[in-house]
């Protein structure tokens, strides 16, 4: 379980996160939604120890982030994280060199699934294929948790489909996933849990199926209620 407790983060005087608390479970897809601005990415970065926090605590299966937890949680930012001159093969070799839990079989499986060629250079990848390679690098570490920052923004429809397909496949099985997004279309039926952020605080946290069953509301209905009032 990833537990975020009272997370507070300031940029200068502006509080980007002001006491954000939530949990994300293994085997569930948790979606961090915020219609405007920062906060979502910062939360993920804070979980990964890529930005210092002002207050609060973050625990990954009871541990604060450390070198061993990087074998447990993978972060897939909305950017290229490999050297552009590397080929996909070299990038995978780099990962294999450093991660004890790297699973080359799974990496190859994903590569075939995404129909990508390992001889392609990172610099030649389209935005969609970059997202896929980023996802591959995370999933092939055999991590327990995957954090994805805006995995669907600005990528083509087919890449979107493929990535969505990964979420429903055995490749995700039993892992915990946190996705940030500002639009919920396409993945509304895919997610277990929604956390609505605004102005640095959690406005609402709910389970999607429970919400449909108990109140007959879709995620967008709740978002409309919460954000627009």
């Amino acid at each position: 379980m990833i537990e975020v407790n009272q997370l507070t983060k300031k940029f200068g005087r502006k509080k980007v996160l002001d006491g954000v608390s939530f949990t994300a479970n293994k085997g569930e897809i948790t979606c961090l939604i915020g219609i405007n601005g920062v906060g979502k990415t910062t939360t993920l970065k804070a979980i990964m120890g890529l930005t210092p926090i002002n207050k609060g605590s973050i625990l990954i299966d009871g541990e604060t982030i450390n070198k061993n937890t990087y074998e447990k949680v993978a972060f897939i930012p909305d950017a290229i994280t490999m050297l552009p001159q590397m080929t996909i093969k070299q990038a995978m070799q780099f990962m294999q060199d450093f991660y004890k839990k790297w699973n080359q079989e799974r990496a190859t499986e994903l590569l075939t699934f995404f129909k990508l060629d390992e001889k392609t250079r990172i610099s030649e990848l389209s935005k969609g294929n970059t997202a896929k390679i980023n996802l591959l690098m995370g999933l092939a570490i055999d991590v327990d948790y995957i954090l994805m920052d805006e995995p669907f923004s600005g990528i083509d429809i087919f890449s979107r489909e493929q990535i969505t397909e990964v979420f429903t496949s055995h490749l995700i099985e039993d892992r915990g996933v946190i996705i940030t997004t500002h639009e919920i279309n396409d993945i509304e039926h895919l997610i277990d849990k929604v956390i609505l952020l605004d102005n640095g605080i959690v406005l609402k946290e709910f389970n999607t199926e429970q919400m449909r069953q108990e109140e007959g509301k879709s995620v967008v209905d709740v978002m409309r209620e919460v954000y627009i009032g």
Binding site: L50, K67, I80, L83, F98
Partner: peptide, 15 residues
Amino acid sequence: GKNTFAYRLLMLPTA
């Protein structure tokens, strides 16, 4: 630059 390799380096499972 276009790529942010720092992400990768800082997330390596090493001190």
